[in-house]
Amino acid sequence: MAILEIEGRKFDVDGDGFLSDPYIWDDDVASLIAKSDGIDSMNEKHWSIVNIIRKHWEEKGMAPMVRTICQESGIRLREIYELFPLGPARGACRVAGLPKPDGCV
């Protein structure tokens, strides 16, 4: 457990900075986590990716495949890595308030 402080707001997070309680998440929290990764302002594409991930996790309990993100958002794979330089897992899933996915990520 650790505390992540962004612009005066404090969040309980795991060692990797993923929210300990995914249910405190909302749009403001997403914007703040994105800021801590250097994404100063989330654009339409960022939101589209984050909302797909969040919806999928709420329905199925896990992060979607990157294929799902690409096909549902219409954003090309290479652009996803540009939008979230840390990648879909440590980048986009963290902004979407999910717990850290297992494995080599």
């Binding site: 992060a63 495949m65 990157v66 294929r67 794979l77 290479r78 990648g87 879909p88 897992a89 996915p101 494995g103 080599c104 990520v105």
Partner: peptide, 11 residues
């Protein structure tokens, strides 16, 4: 494969 390839990094 490493599962992170199909999941998040398929390039």
């Amino acid at each position: 494969l490493n599962p992170r390839e199909p999941k998040f990094f398929p390039l």
